[in-house]
Design a protein around this nucleic acid. Structure first.
Lengths: 228, 228
DNA sequence: GAAGATCACGATGTCAACATCCAGACAGTT
DNA sequence: AACTGTCTGGATGTTGACATCGTGATCTTC
């Protein structure tokens, strides 16, 4: 059995705040005041402080000395940065996962994509689809079985979540029309193909998300060149 | 001018503890008790606690709920994990850096390698050489100019430092005989060559370090297969 | 004698008060 | 009018005391 470990109030507080940010209830750029949060979450400032440090580790907020912590903004530079690093991580993750792939794991991935397909038919909301998308990639990192890689992914995951949430709002149709096919292709490459084409496919999968997001982000020329 | 920012006691405490770990004064696996550290560093437990959280972010220590924090151990699995992720990051970093390379930056890198060469002649100690090695790679991440990439690197850097420190002790000669040449080759590829051969060279540079470390690590069969 | 329950100790988790610092408003000077 | 210095409100940084938990030793029971 897996150890049901307690995590403490700091993690709980981080979860609540993260949720609020990802749901859009706390807009980008807004300040997260420790006393306010402590009051509304009914924990002490110390725990809130520790929770905010966790979110900073995830890149969701940014703290400055004696100036407080704010939710990150969503600029095109940030998109390019995040997705460039994500591409590098996914490339490694899929490569490692391919070596440890089993029929069971393949089936699990297909189940997730099936759920996506069903969510499309039922016309489910953005968050549901996005959760499945992220779960799919989480499973890949799990089977890659490299704890440092997973940690690095955690440091990017929430930001990706935030960006993709924006995409499901602004670019709804295009996202819904490509998710299933792209992920099915990834599975095919994962369980069958050569390493280098898989690596290439993983990078392309991420970069297509980057381009789609850039096209739809307000106040910027569409699909500008170099990532990073 | 660059902002001269204050950082607070937590960062100061983290620096002192990190230094102690990397110098080997605190052996792997040993417990870091908050009250002890608070007493010896002459700060409160809260600051020590926050400092330890910083070190956990860097992967140097590991904390468990109500069980305290300990210095990480140094197993072959850990080496494989760290260097696999590092290879992926360096691959991206060098690729991005190549696009932004200027003669000035190239000269800077050469200056660092010159310093390595001189350190070899003077028969300087391991830490000096290692510091130059890390500074070299830091400069690459700087010119890559991707803050998320730099953050990911920070989450690995201290562990790499720890591992490489072990290597300079256990594998002194081989390390000293290859550092200069390998880094000069990297510079050549950075300022001249094609993107894919550069990426390949960066990965190979990291993987050669991994293999060397594995060969020399006690209690294990030399250079076993798959990384990660 | 071995397995399980009990307990004490030492450590971490949490809290609320105190010290410090930043940003903006305001007034004084050139 | 622009610049500089002061002040103040409100936030964060820091601290020590209290609450809670884990570990190992001891005791009990079969």
């Amino acid at each position: 059995m897996r150890r049901a470990r307690r995590r403490g109030l700091a993690h709980e507080a981080a979860d609540r705040v993260r949720e609020a940010i990802l749901e859009g209830r706390v807009p980008p750029g807004s300040a997260l005041r420790e006393v306010e949060l402590a009051a509304s979450l009914e924990v002490s400032r110390g725990s809130v402080r520790e929770g905010l440090a966790i979110l900073e580790r995830e890149g969701l907020v940014r703290s400055e000395w004696h100036r407080g912590t704010r939710v990150i903004e969503l600029t095109t530079d940030d998109v390019n940065e995040v997705y460039a690093v994500r591409a590098a991580l996914e490339r490694l993750a899929t490569t490692l996962a391919a070596r440890r792939m089993t029929p069971e794991r393949t089936a699990e991935l297909h189940t997730l994509v099936d759920a996506m397909e069903q969510a499309l038919c039922v016309d489910a909301d953005g968050p549901t689809l996005l959760a499945l998308d992220l779960a799919f990639h989480d499973r890949i990192y799990d089977t890659a079985a490299n704890s440092r890689l997973t940690t690095s992914w955690r440091g990017l995951r929430s930001q990706v979540h935030l960006f993709q949430a924006a995409r499901t709002r602004l670019d709804r149709e295009r996202y819904r029309s490509t998710v299933v096919a792209e992920h099915r292709a990834l599975i095919r490459h994962l369980s069958g193909g050569a390493t280098d084409v898989l690596a290439q496919a993983a990078e392309e999968h991420v970069d297509s998300a980057r381009r789609a997001l850039l096209d739809v982000l307000p106040g910027v020329a569409p699909t500008e060149g170099a990532p990073g």
